[in-house]
Amino acid sequence: MTELVATTPGLFPLPDWAKTEVADRAGSGGGRHPGDGRGAVAEAYGRARREVLDDQVEAGLDRIVEGQLRWTDMLAHPLVASDATERGDVRRYYENNNFYRAPRVVAEPTPTGAVAEELRAARDHVGDAPLQAVLPGPYSLSDLAIDDRYGDPAEFLAAVAEFLAGEVERFPEVETLFLLEPSLVVNPPGDDLDARVPEAVDVVADATDADVVVYAYWGALEEKVYAHLMDATVEALGFDFVTEQDRTLYNVTEYGTTDAIAAGVVDGQNTRVEDPETVRERVDWIDERVPAQEFDRVYVTASTELFYLPTTIAREKLGVLAAATGEVEA
């Protein structure tokens, strides 16, 4: 019996009212961590956070994310918010028409507890609902940042992993931790570094009792990267089935996979709203295509972060995810 868990990879779009309110008050560029303290911007972010939490609860998602509305530099945010970094140049965010300020790491990054604070605020609002933390995986965060401190990719990766582990240690109790690793697909680690990725993931995963899911998206992992990643001790690996199916299924059947998986089956970058039946069929299809394995659990998720979408569509997609997982157990 496979348990289907409706969730998302976080990074929600700001509600439209907050887009104006926060931008007007914060000014372009904000601070290191926009909305710190008790001012009007913090209040607006708090209201916006409660709104996206309520949206998820109302939609019936099985894991509730904080929404990361303050993460103006998307997955680079945890390092942007760290005192160990300076503001680097503005770079393209993966192969999207989005941009972020690359954090330039000039000293050993030390945890700030800021993400933990966001999660506590979420916990206060949703009570006992199962909470899911979302962080960049260590490889993606090191790939998005600029290393001006270590000079060696492996050393830098290890330092970023320690930094993330420190953030995770400060977390309140959460059910699940999603580590987003799009860089593993888009800008895969070369020889030697690929073997270090599972260790780095384990450093972060070992810092929590939560179920840890490593979700890579925008395509399939290179075979060797996948084979190495299988050495990580995590509950689930996750795959973007919206972008790529065959090569992912090849990896999974050739090298096996975790007992639980995450399946990106709702398009996080297209406003076309899927039919829940279709989404459910996609999940069943994946299950059928991996006959050697019965999954304990499938995290049914949007294929990417949700901030690419207009807010109304993002909200509709939450409903689709919940409906697709809501009826009969597979």
Partner: peptide, 17 residues
């Protein structure tokens, strides 16, 4: 047009569908 989407920081465009 369903609404504005983020380009970067607090800059948004009306990306059409």
């Amino acid at each position: 047009f369903y609404g504005p989407v983020k380009v970067w920081d607090h800059n948004y465009i009306k990306k059409p569908s």
